[in-house]
Amino acid sequence: MAESQLSDFPKYVHCLGLDLEVHKEVFWSDTGQWVAENLPPMIGKHVLEIGCGCGLIALFLAKNGASDVLATDVTTNAVENTLANANRNNLSNLTCITSDIFQDIDRNTKFDCIVWHMPATCVPDDFQIVSVIEHSSFDPGGSLLDRFLRESPYHLAPNGTIMLGYNVSRNESFITDKLKAYRLSHRRIAEKKFTPDSMINLHLYELRPLMDGS
């Protein structure tokens, strides 16, 4: 990850009909494009994206029919990058704030869809994040996943859905057991192995809270 930050910034990318700039210490990879391409249509929906990085997914949804998109990230670098890209692409139906998952999101605001392309690597509880860019790739002890699954239903509108891009690596039962524990139904809508050894084996899930008695 340190090596990825040695080149000149900003970088400029044309992707999914968007002109993007990518700032230093902000996440960018082909996995984000894959998630955006495989999301269901969001026409007319109020959407929340957690962990927006440079804004690719949020901007793609805002450009392609979402009524409005709130993008969030734990790092100010990513928020500034997403806002710059919204301006670059003349998108007025997107806002972006700094938030540690749901920490700074009004619980009274409900969304038709919540999207998170999660950090790809679960690391031990005592793993120390030492650089800004590492927030985009590491989930110490799976604590971010637990917080997201526990809190997401409180921010959903009736009949709302959660779209989770998750690296199952070689152990899909880790995520499916979590979904069962948090009473979330799941449907895998897409999957792709990004590395031959399956260390990045991305699944895109559609999640819904189970009703009492389900």
Rank of each mutant, 00 (worst) to 15 (best):
S173N: 15
D68V: 00
D177C: 09
E134P: 12
I129F: 06
F111T: 00
C122N: 13
D125C: 06
N87P: 00
H46L: 02
Q128D: 07
L18K: 05
L70Y: 05
T121N: 11
A86I: 01
L156G: 12
F174W: 07
Q128F: 03
N87A: 14
D68S: 04
G32N: 10
L83Q: 15
R150V: 11
L70V: 06
I43G: 02
Y182P: 10
I50P: 02
V47Q: 05
I200V: 13
L145W: 09
A2H: 12
Q33T: 11
H14A: 12
C52Q: 00
D112T: 01
A36F: 01
N108D: 04
L207A: 02
N171R: 15
E134Y: 12
G160C: 11
A78G: 10
W28F: 15
N108I: 00
C54W: 12
S137F: 15
F138N: 11
T75F: 02
Y166M: 10
S99D: 04
P140W: 08
H23K: 13
N159I: 00
L56N: 07
S4E: 08
I114F: 01
E80Q: 11
E3Y: 13
E151P: 04
M211R: 15
M163P: 00
F148T: 06
K63Q: 14
G165T: 07
C113T: 08
D146P: 07
W34K: 05
C15R: 07
S198G: 06
F174A: 13
M118L: 05
F60W: 08
L16I: 02
E206N: 09
Y205D: 01
Y154T: 09
F174Q: 14
C122T: 14
L56C: 06
V69G: 01
L18Q: 11
S169P: 04
D112M: 01
L39F: 07
H155E: 06
R107T: 10
A66S: 15
C122W: 13
P124R: 07
V168D: 08
A62L: 01
S137M: 14
V168G: 05
Y12C: 13
F111K: 01
G51F: 12
T76K: 11
R170A: 13
